[in-house]
Nucleic acid binder design. Structure first.
Length: 560
DNA sequence: AAAATCGCCAACCGCAGATAG
DNA sequence: TCTATCTGCGGTTGGCGATTT
């Protein structure tokens, strides 16, 4: 048959090897002589040969291994085996928490640059990191959790702001030490922020519909909006995963009250869908982050009555890095009538733009295989190209919320507004008044109707917004259940139970949805390992104090 | 107890850049 | 300058054990 079996006298080839030798397709690394090269798992004998060869000849010239060692493996396979398993100083076993944190940070900065990431993790291979990340993606997506902890995004934004190097750096960020948190964020993001501070709200009628919300949805992971989550996962499993992802929930005090944490997500989904009248059909083809953003914007448009012309089947633009986003985007993108949670809306409102009018992606194409935040930055750069087009002409963009409306909306929620002012307003992590987020996320119904009442029309920012409940399964019982559980989505919500009643009841009539959204947005690693840093608090008002109100929000949700 | 599902891991594949001839 | 080869990287697949239904 081949040398594969004939030369087994050296002990290299085990029985399983000779039984089904695979023919190397002859691509790079294949045997030029056409000998049958083995594929599949390596045996210890093969490992020994390879190790011995490398000891003698050093790394490299992998194709010569087959020629000189009698090892019938292609060069690529040898290199891979050596790099991933045989080379010295390899660290085996599960990633430590520190390593995981580093990976998260690195990925936030680099994207899917596994090799670069591996360079920052001694003893770890790119393959390991890649596998870990892919598993993490699956797990968190299934659990409806954001991919990145908030502090990662906030840190990225914060440090980018402080960096202020005045230029968008090239896509190759890997040369910087991510461990130093030198994230490369285009200044455009912060130009917008500064504009907000100056009272000149960015209004970008001609900008592609890339918004901070979409950026956040990407950066934080759209998965916090579990609406796209495939409903196939058993609730118990989701509960398990949720708990595993929220170590804090293992605490008895929390766990005892968490009779069905996964229900939170379901409820969140229900509420969101209910509130926005969508089932968020899954559409894996919709990869357009811009459309994604447009849809997000569409929500804010719903809120303020200026509906966007984002529509189903809009241009499909590829994500620079699809990864886990694809289905997520699709879930949103497939429903023009649907809207994501309010949380993001006011972000959009500040960097709102018309729906994509062209192939913006081509203008801001991220480097190949870039990661989420990476792609995010490129989008932002594209945004920057149109930044100068800011205009106050509201009429030119029916899809844009006006600054005035935002201010107005902010005033509707004095509680949140005040808190944010106390902690750094108007600089918010999202580049604008955080209170506007709260206000937007906190539908103030003039009629006082609650979301669970399926109001045919809700008043957002003084405008009537049609709400199209999809699943008439929302019940007061479920709402109560959800509200209670919502308190557990952020462990710290349990800590503060005294002052929330003092808060304006008018601020929170419909808190549940928002709290869920925020919980999903922050709850993940917040409850896990989010240790607000001083810098976080100081710059963003996003530290523990900055979110002081969140527990209130949750607790308020328990109001009858 | 069996089937289904999932997570983890290892390995392969294809592409692209670098380098040598 | 062109071509072939090597090397590295990222995406994907498949196997296997564990867990769940």
């Amino acid at each position: 048959m081949s040398r594969l079996t004939n030369d087994s006298d050296d002990g290299v080839f085990s029985r399983d090897q000779t039984e089904s030798p695979l023919i190397d397709e002859g691509n790079s690394g294949g045997s030029p002589s056409g000998v049958v090269l083995k594929k599949g798992p390596w045996t210890s004998a093969e490992d020994a040969i390879l190790v011995d060869y490398v000891k003698k000849h050093g790394e490299g010239n992998w194709n010569a291994v087959q020629k000189h060692s009698g090892l019938f493996r292609c060069g690529k396979s040898c290199r891979l085996r050596w790099a991933n398993h045989l080379r010295p100083n390899l660290k085996k076993g599960a990633f430590t928490q520190e390593e995981e944190q580093i990976i998260i940070e690195l990925h936030a900065k680099m994207g899917n640059k596994w090799a670069r990431m591996a360079a920052h993790l001694p003893g770890r291979t790119d393959n390991e990191i890649k596998n870990y990340w892919n598993t993490r993606i699956k797990r968190r997506q299934r659990a409806g959790l954001p991919l990145y902890p908030p502090e990662v995004c906030m840190q990225a934004l914060q440090e980018s702001q402080s960096q202020n190097t005045g230029g968008f750096q090239n896509g190759d960020n890997g040369h910087q030490d991510p461990l130093q948190n030198t994230y490369d964020i285009p200044d455009i993001i912060f130009d917008s922020i500064k504009s907000n501070q100056g009272g000149v709200l960015p209004y970008v009628p001609e900008l592609p519909d890339i918004s901070m919300s979409s950026m956040l949805m990407k950066g934080l992971g759209p998965s916090q909006y579990c609406t796209y989550m495939p409903p196939t996962m058993h609730r118990q499993k989701r509960l398990r995963e949720s708990v595993s992802l929220f170590p804090g929930f293992n605490h008895p005090s929390v766990r005892d009250g968490l009779h069905s944490f996964d229900q939170i997500q379901d409820d969140t989904c229900d509420k969101i869908a209910q509130s926005f009248g969508s089932t968020f059909p899954y559409d894996p083809d919709v990869k357009n982050p811009l459309q994604y953003g447009a849809i997000l914007g569409g929500n804010s448009l719903l809120n303020n009555g200026h509906f966007s012309n984002s529509k189903p089947g809009a241009e499909k633009l590829e994500l620079p890095s699809l990864q886990f986003l694809e289905p997520d985007l699709g879930s949103w993108g497939g429903a023009s009538s649907s809207s994501p949670p309010h949380l993001i809306d006011s972000v959009d409102a500040f960097i709102q733009s018309p729906p994509p009018t062209g192939t913006v992606q081509s203008e801001c194409a991220s480097p190949r295989n870039s990661g989420l935040l990476d792609a995010l930055l490129h989008e932002a750069k594209a945004l920057s190209s149109g930044k100068n087009n800011y205009s106050s002409d509201k009429s030119s963009n029916s899809s844009t919320i006006s600054p005035g409306e935002l201010v107005e909306s902010s005033n509707n929620v004095n509680l949140c507004d005040t808190e944010w002012q106390d902690y750094g307003e108007p600089i918010s992590p999202l580049g604008h008044s955080a209170s506007s987020i709260f206000s937007d996320c906190t539908p103030i119904s003039a009629s006082g109707s609650s979301m669970h009442e399926h109001p045919a029309t809700e008043t957002f920012l003084g405008q009537n917004v049609k709400s199209e409940p999809v699943e008439p399964i929302w019940t007061p019982e479920r709402q109560k259940e959800t509200s209670i559980r919502s308190n557990y989505t952020r462990p710290d919500a349990l800590l503060d139970s005294s002052d929330w009643l003092d808060q304006s009841a008018g601020c929170v009539k419909e808190q549940t949805m928002m709290s869920d959204a925020i919980a999903t947005l922050l709850g993940d690693d917040y409850g896990n390992n989010y240790k607000p840093t001083t810098s976080n608090q100081g710059v963003w008002g996003f530290g523990s104090c900055g979110w002081k109100n969140l527990p209130t929000v949750y607790q308020m949700s328990e109001l009858p």
